[in-house]
Amino acid sequence: MSALVEIRNLSKIYERGKQKIEVLHHVQLDIEAGDFMALMGPSGSGKTTLLNLIGGLDSPTDGSITIGGQRIDRLSESALAKWRSSHVGFVFQFYNLLPMLSARRNVELPLLLTRLSAAQRKRNAAVALQLVGLADRAAHKPGELSGGQQQRVAIARAIVSDPTLLVCDEPTGDLDRQSAAEVLTLLQQLNRDHGKTIIMVTHDPKAAEFAKHTLQLDKGSLVASAQAAPA
């Protein structure tokens, strides 16, 4: 059985003037459907770069990325945008919610790109908010929510269109212990109960313990893979 994510010989080179910086060197990686993978490594090792490539936010210099049987490195920019809208959910360190919209409207955003009716969009957003435990905060604006709550709204937004893959870049990087634990438990639950495949970048070994596997990236190469203790 082939993996959900197949990465072959992946390289990413940034050019700054005449200087070339090879951020990723020939990365080989398979991620099975249903996995919860933590990606660790020192600052500048290329974690965000790898995550953005998997999420289809950027294109590789060399190599291939196949997700669910589709070569996403070959898609045009607009085709990639369309692919993202139905296949990947994103969670960022700084939540990145639209400050003027209520929690529900924020969660609804990805659904604007679908054919769903206003009533269906509202219902799906309500279900997603329910799932992250914020049904009672639907009408609140981001500014009226705590950091942990905002991140849960962001997670609701990431899962509302039911993507197979969730990519999270330091989702707990800006949260206190308690809120971080809540967010990580939520991700674990989404992985276990809803079958979401999750790739999460983190600096925090405690956060990585919530994942099923941990990958180490160093200077653009995967160095080790360790099995985390099952939770």
Binding site: G55, L57, E77, S78, A81, K82, R84, S85, S86, F90, F92, F94, N96, L97, L98, P99, L109, P110, L113, R157
Partner: peptide, 15 residues
Amino acid sequence: VPELAVLKTIGFSNH
């Protein structure tokens, strides 16, 4: 800028 980036991340096209 970050908000517009989020819209694009979610799948809004450049156009």
